[in-house]
Design a protein around this nucleic acid. Structure first.
Lengths: 231, 231
DNA sequence: TCAAAAGTGTTTTACCTACACCCATGA
DNA sequence: TCATGGGTGTAGGTAAAACACTTTTGA
């Protein structure tokens, strides 16, 4: 494509914050870098955007190359473009985030040599990350805290079939506070967005919990009603 | 700054969506372009980012150069980075948005020759805009629709002193629906975030309305209480 | 005295909150 | 039979929704 636009030395990267919920903990996907700068550091999966790809595609490609994860729908979080954020020059990064369910997912494993490893790490004890990735992570966490009130992100993190206790634990972890069991259940069931299954938990050494599924159709119907002032 | 990073031909732009409320209508700030591509078209104020400036600063500079408006606090909306969005090559744009009050504001007027004119245009009858600016505008509108529920953006659009009817009209315009007058007033006054003034409207040929001010201190106090499940 | 907008209250309904005990299961 | 988590109901308070008439003012 011919161009008479000014050429800047700006470069673009994408960094991905992928959340999952496992063993009662909120986790994110990290890599160990195999390239300078910040070689051997832990970092969010991130790399350069090519000139011939849209940024959403680039995000998918980069996540795949560094972690082996494919087909994950990510949304933009924010752009980080401070002049000093990268030691080697002007690098603007677009942060993407997603929430996924671990069950059925392969173990993460880099496809490219850019990363040595890829693995899940609990969010409550994160080490120092490369670049400004800690800042990016914190902004993502804030985002999902807000989003859980108006969007069914919790169900994206849980297995397809889950118990009400699992759902409550997830809310508690994200919101970082205890919730009342009876009120939580009443409220959730009242929404009518959970489908009760005929199945129960297996292999637990206590009373097995009923399992539920998220009913996306009912959810969509419910949230078409907009908030209002009684107009 | 020395760099061994790959040099891409990507260029970066910023586009600004500035909302205001005037004569009962929601408006945005547009320019008439004086440069190719899309010379003579209407567009959002936008231009290239320099390599030596942070993107937030760049946004401020660009808005000033194209419209003469200064010191306006803008927030990031989204990045638009489709390969085909600019006719001359790969251009990634960061959209910023802001809400401002018109009263006390100078008429917009370009400082740079990049724009021929700058002016306010009602959002309900927007013409076709250059590039993908219509898409950018629509995303901004959606954003403020959501945001008005959890953020005091309405008060940024109104004059410092306003009547309850003005406030309600603004909500109605943004949400695009009629609201009940009594319920709206009750709810707003109940929040306790409005300070009643000793003044009334001037120069109207009907019963003059009481004027109010937004009380940011009380607002901040109110919204520190988080949403909860009764935990 | 008319037109135009300001201002005002009550009832019903829905949801939020606080709170404590019995049940089912496998080890 | 015990330990572990599963599961349940009610009463009181607060906020949302629906709804229509009187008041003030200037022209």
């Amino acid at each position: 494509m011919e161009t008479n636009l000014p050429k800047f030395e700006s470069v673009f990267t994408i960094d991905c914050v992928i959340f999952a919920f496992d063993a009662g903990k909120l986790k994110i996907l990290l890599i160990e870098r195999n390239e300078e700068p910040f070689k051997d550091w832990l970092a969010l999966p991130g790399n350069f955007v090519n000139t011939d790809e849209g940024i959403d595609q680039a995000a998918e490609r980069i996540l795949y190359e560094l972690t082996g994860l494919k087909g994950i729908y990510m949304e933009q979080l924010h752009i980080f473009g401070d002049v000093g954020r990268h030691p080697q020059g002007r690098v603007i990064t677009v942060a993407y985030y997603a929430m996924i369910r671990l069950s059925g997912q392969k173990e993460p494993k880099p496809v490219s040599s850019f990363a040595k490893k890829a693995f899940w790490h609990a969010t409550d004890m994160l080490p120092k990350l490369a670049f400004d990735h800690t800042k990016i992570f914190e902004k993502s966490l804030q985002k999902i805290k807000n989003k859980i009130f108006y969007s069914p992100i919790a169900f994206e993190l849980l297995p397809e079939k889950f118990s009400l206790t699992q759902l409550q634990q997830l809310y508690e972890v994200i919101l970082n506070k205890k919730l009342d069991k009876r009120n939580f259940r009443k409220k959730m069931l009242n929404y009518g967005i959970l489908k009760e299954l005929d199945e129960k938990q297996q292999g637990v050494s206590y009373r097995a919990a009923k399992l539920y599924k998220f009913d996306r159709r009912k959810y969509n119907k419910l949230f078409q009603k907009e908030l209002s002032f009684g107009g």
